[in-house]
């Protein structure tokens, strides 16, 4: 595996690979997003208790799940970057952080907009919303730390270390549902043996989760390429790339 991976430790190859992968993710994202959002908004039956307000679930749950997934991606990348001294992995951490932060913000905002008609308040100090808020703080801390360094190599390392420290937070977020008694519904999808959500509602939700996941991939790849360009801007391959672009 290392033999196969080795060429991709070179910036130029990674740039090309990321560029090759990105359209595939994009091709998966756009149709799944359109199908999922139309199905969820117009075709899925209304919830018998929450009426049509439950349709917020089709962005709330995918955003919340993928915010966590983005963090896991960052944690894995940070681990690889620090253990094997792979700078590219540290760049992936920097590339994923803003995407994760935006997803977390979406999850929080939609949670608030869902909470208002359901609980009668925009904000309730419920375990999941609170831990989502803490996740947003952690993301902001990582982004702020990354931007504070002018040397981007050091910035990547520092952000990676902070990401790994923050991993301790993820289990706490996960178990907070158990620890605190809350107003929020328990985990809806993970209970496969006893589905508390109807199939007609579940399918568009899964499609939306898929769409959010692939979009996360697109954005990470895109930002990863930008990071690469910035850091390698004095290398010959970037100069060649810019010259070709300038002519075309």
């Amino acid at each position: 595996m290392w033999k196969w991976l080795h060429p991709y430790a070179k910036a130029e190859h990674s740039y090309a690979l990321a560029g090759k992968l990105m359209p595939w993710f994009l091709v998966l994202t756009i149709p799944s997003f359109i199908i999922g959002i139309v199905w969820g908004l117009a075709f899925a039956p209304a919830d018998y208790q929450q009426g049509d307000s439950f349709r917020i679930i089709y962005i709330h749950v995918p955003a919340a799940m993928m915010a966590m997934a983005a963090y896991s991606t960052m944690a894995i990348a940070a681990f690889i970057g620090l253990v094997w001294q792979l700078r590219l992995a540290e760049m992936a951490v920097a590339a994923a952080a803003p995407v994760g932060a935006i997803y977390t913000f979406i999850a929080l905002f939609t949670g608030a907009a869902w909470g208002k008609p359901m609980w009668g308040a925009w904000w309730v100090w419920d375990a999941r919303l609170t831990s989502e808020l803490i996740l947003l703080f952690v993301y902001m801390g990582i982004i702020a730390l990354y931007n504070a360094f002018s040397d981007k190599v050091l910035a990547g390392r520092a952000a990676s270390i902070l990401t790994l420290v923050g991993v301790i937070n993820l289990p706490i977020i996960h178990f907070s549902v158990v620890w605190w008694n809350t107003l929020h519904q328990g985990a809806t999808i993970t209970k496969f043996e006893q589905p508390s959500i109807a199939t007609e509602m579940l399918i568009p939700l899964l499609i939306m989760i898929f769409s959010f996941a692939t979009f996360l991939g697109v954005m990470i790849l895109y930002r990863f390429r930008s990071e690469l360009l910035q850091r390698e801007q004095h290398r010959a391959w970037v100069i060649k790339l810019v010259q070709i672009k300038g002519r075309g």
Binding site: G51, S53, R55, I56, I59, P98, F105, F109, A113, P117
Partner: peptide, 30 residues
């Protein structure tokens, strides 16, 4: 939206706007 139009469209609208902001930021950075 069965009387929930404000909340549903607000949630969807803000989400789309933030995603567009993210895309714009990424493109501009590049």
């Amino acid at each position: 939206m069965g009387g929930y139009s404000f909340y549903v469209w607000l949630a969807y609208g803000v989400s789309i706007v933030s995603v567009i902001a993210l895309i714009t930021h990424s493109v501009l950075t590049r």
